[in-house]
């Protein structure tokens, strides 16, 4: 479904983010990308949603070569990938409802679909009663749940989550992880980037370990082991 082929990302001679990274993600898989800060996890996810371009290599999403896409084709790629970030990246001047609805609006969904689906998804993440709150009126865990609802609402085939629990307390952390597992069980591929050892060891899913921009281990099921 997703294939990274010999991906390198070199910012300058002193800063090499990724070195010849190659692996494949299968449909409906739950894959964790682990590594210390600066190992290249976030860079890899940024390349997948075309936020940045690699220096070398190819990235395939289904049969499409992401690097050969024209700028006006990128929105269509991004609508197939739901992204969740450590800093939530919610639109501050939109309510929880509007943030989630925005993802459907850009995809051209009808008003009826939006009115029907957004409350359901917010209910799924446990925020139905806070749908009219602005992000500044929500806690960190609630913001992340809105972000997941936004990533989920247009039914993408993949969800990429970059350190989604990085800013959360343990209770909220496990709420978010359980939510991601539930989404995966419903058939959506999930790629989770994290450096939380406890989560990885508890998941017992495939783990790709990165160190200094290179893949040092790819195991299924895997554990959090860094040299």
């Amino acid at each position: 479904m997703i294939r990274f082929e010999n991906i390198s990302k070199i910012y300058n001679s002193h800063s090499v983010a990724l070195r010849s990274v190659s692996f494949e993600v299968k449909p409906q898989e739950f894959l964790s990308l682990v590594g210390r800060s600066g190992a290249g996890k976030s860079t890899l996810l940024k390349l997948l949603i075309a936020e940045e371009k690699p220096t070398h290599g190819k990235i395939f999403f289904d049969t499409q070569d992401i690097l050969k896409m024209r700028p006006n084709e990128l929105p269509f790629l991004r609508r197939q990938i739901g992204a969740v970030f450590q800093d939530f990246k919610l639109l501050p001047k939109k309510t929880a409802y509007e943030n989630v609805a925005f993802a459907m609006e850009v995809a051209g969904k009808s008003d009826e679909e939006i009115k029907s689906d957004v409350p359901k998804v917010l209910d799924l993440v446990g925020l139905k009663d806070k749908m009219n709150n602005f992000p500044k009126q929500l806690s960190g865990g609630e913001k992340q749940r809105v972000a997941i609802a936004r990533a989920l609402v247009h039914r993408p085939s993949v969800i990429v989550a970059d350190e989604p629990t990085g800013n959360l307390d343990p209770i909220n952390t496990w709420d978010i992880i359980r939510l991601l597992l539930k989404i995966n069980e419903l058939g959506t591929t999930v790629i989770l980037a994290t450096h939380d050892k406890e989560i990885i060891n508890a998941l017992e899913k495939r783990v790709v370990s990165l160190e200094n921009g290179s893949v040092i281990r790819d195991e299924n099921p895997g554990r959090y082991i860094l040299s």
């Binding site: 949603i49 936020e51 006006n72 929105p75 269509f76 991004r78 609508r79 992204a83 990246k89 919610l90 639109l91 501050p92 001047k93 925005f102 993802a103 850009v106 995809a107 936004r150 247009h154």
Partner: peptide
């Protein structure tokens, strides 16, 4: 906000 809108898939 503009960056977020683009990453969510807005043209």
């Amino acid at each position: 906000e503009i960056t977020v809108m683009k990453l969510v898939g807005a043209s």
